[in-house]
């Protein structure tokens, strides 16, 4: 009916044995057991170590999307404001930084974070699948929120979206809006198409879900939620960030679609 669960031998093989070893070749030596694991090893690849990487990179994403969403709101100020903003992003820090320098720093950081984030996510995903190779015939999830249960597929959806989004608005490889002279035109002429707005809206909602659980989850992973109160606060923070990001990102496309900005 279903796949055989592994026998006992499976985990003896996989167990790391952090045991003080007998030294003189005899089997039973009176040694005092203490947890004397070399301090450096293991923790990074440990499930918690991976989670810490995810939390760290996730928080970088949070910072980025908050700023990005704020930046997008400049569209409401009209063409000049937005184009100036886009230009300013590239001249920021000059002459210490070359033209577009900040942007490249951000890109490197984001890309590195993404690699770490995705690596950790997929590694843990794999481990979790291996941890229950035979599924339940009936399983209820009573305490899990929707956002917590959709982290993995939601994350993949976000990844796909980001690739699309970069091809769309950064590299202009995909241009349903046609070649446009300025960043402002690019945005405005994109979002008067309902289906592009829909894609973006779905992505933003996925992002809101991901962050709603993600912010609370990162706090827990970083070990900041040691009491019931702090746990409740982290959950509220998650909902707040999720809602904020969703609203901020959705305003410009909707404003454009409904002709409030043009």
């Amino acid at each position: 009916m279903s796949r055989l669960p592994a026998g006992r031998e499976k985990f003896t093989r996989r167990t790391a044995a952090p045991v003080t070893q007998a030294t003189d070749g005899e089997r039973y030596v009176a040694i005092v057991a203490t947890s004397t694991l070399p301090a450096s090893q293991q923790a990074v690849r440990s499930s918690i170590g991976l989670k810490l990487l995810m939390a760290g990179s996730g928080l970088i994403f949070v910072g980025y999307v908050l700023l990005h969403a704020y930046g997008n709101l400049m569209v409401l100020g009209g063409a000049d404001t937005f184009n100036n903003y886009a230009h300013h992003l590239r001249t920021f820090g000059q002459p210490m930084l070359p033209y577009g320098g900040l942007l490249w720093i951000v890109r490197v950081v984001l890309l590195a974070s993404l690699v770490l984030h995705a690596y950790s996510a997929f590694t843990l995903w794999g481990r979790a699948n291996g941890a229950r190779s035979t599924k339940y015939a009936v399983k209820k999830n009573v305490a899990a929120s929707l956002s917590s249960r959709t982290m993995r597929f939601g994350g993949v959806a976000l990844l796909l979206f980001v690739i699309f989004h970069i091809l769309h608005l950064t590299t202009h490889t995909i241009t349903p809006q046609g070649k446009q002279p300025t960043p402002y035109d690019n945005v405005v002429n994109s979002f008067d198409k309902w289906w592009l707005v829909l894609i973006y809206a779905l992505a933003v909602i996925a992002l809101a879900f991901h962050l709603t659980h993600g912010v609370w989850s990162a706090s827990q992973t970083l070990g900041l939620t040691n009491t019931a109160t702090s746990r409740a606060r982290a959950k509220i923070a998650g909902h707040f960030v999720g809602a904020l990001v969703a609203t901020a990102f959705l305003i410009p496309p909707l404003a454009i679609l409904f002709g409030i900005v043009d």
């Binding site: 045991v19 003080t20 007998a22 089997r27 039973y28 030596v29 009176a30 040694i31 005092v32 057991a33």
Partner: peptide
């Protein structure tokens, strides 16, 4: 359990 780990 500590002694089990120690092998005694």
């Amino acid at each position: 359990e500590r002694q089990i780990a120690a092998g005694t």
